[in-house]
Design a protein around this nucleic acid. Structure first.
Lengths: 130, 130
DNA sequence: TTTCCTCCTAGAGTGTGCTCTAGGTCAAGC
DNA sequence: GCTTGACCTAGAGCACACTCTAGGAGGAAA
């Protein structure tokens, strides 16, 4: 009946089957339900949670912090404050990362400018030498 | 005489002494000049190059690509086109990364909103229960 | 019923980018 | 002249996040 197999879930959330099992083992997601043969069945809630995990990983949250977040979530409503704090801190880190990327991007764009000018110069010389 | 020691250079560019020697060993920078006792002396040009490398690493360029860039640079002017291409590709990757970060940040901000509302709800209940 | 596919667990292996250790040299200050 | 501290090389070790392997079980299609 209900739920996706590990292979289907992996395809749906864009993680490997190995990674899905590893995330579970690492406590990043609560133990997934099993069918009569002991095979994992991923519910909609499991999938939603996995998608959130991929967003957190995508923004560079360490596995350690994701585990902490998962533990807090399992503990229920009284950890909402801690979870809020965790996300707000992470938000700041992500914004900082974006700012750093824009800053370092400037050095790259400067180089692109220099190399474009150098290329144009070489072409001019080639024309003159012709 | 001229040039900074490895310790001074490390302090200046914000990398460890170990990393500086490792970068050189990996071909990310041309062999640094030595004093009479065989100790490295970093020139201004070495430092500029190291700063550029930190920008590239900061934007997530793999060491492999930095090595390729260093090799191209050592080969002289005829590789300007290849270097331009390398930087333009890297620029696209960085812009893509920034876009991904903004996209995934939305999930985080949505969660922050939810948790703020949940916290406000708990406070209201506490007031009523008082 | 045989074959095939997907699944299971436990644990080993991998790629990346450093980071550290061991064992030693050298120059400078006391 | 002796100690101290920064430096040297070669190579081992480490943190992180997977990724893969071995060995086996179960179900379903031919």
């Amino acid at each position: 009946m209900g739920g996706l197999s590990v292979g289907e879930a992996a395809a749906k959330v864009g993680l490997s089957v190995h990674t899905l099992r590893w995330y579970e083992q690492e406590g990043l997601l609560s133990p997934v339900g099993r069918d009569s043969a002991g095979r994992r069945r991923y519910s909609e809630a499991d999938l939603d949670w996995l998608v959130l995990l991929t967003r957190l990983r995508g923004t560079g949250m360490p596995v350690r912090d994701m585990r902490r977040y998962a533990e807090l979530s399992r503990q229920g409503d009284e950890t909402v404050g801690a979870r809020l704090e965790l996300f707000e801190q992470h938000r700041e880190r992500v914004l900082g990362r974006i700012a750093d990327l824009y800053r370092d991007l400037e050095a790259i764009e400067y180089k692109i400018k220099i190399y474009r000018e150098a290329e144009a110069g070489q072409e001019r010389e080639a024309v003159i030498a012709r």
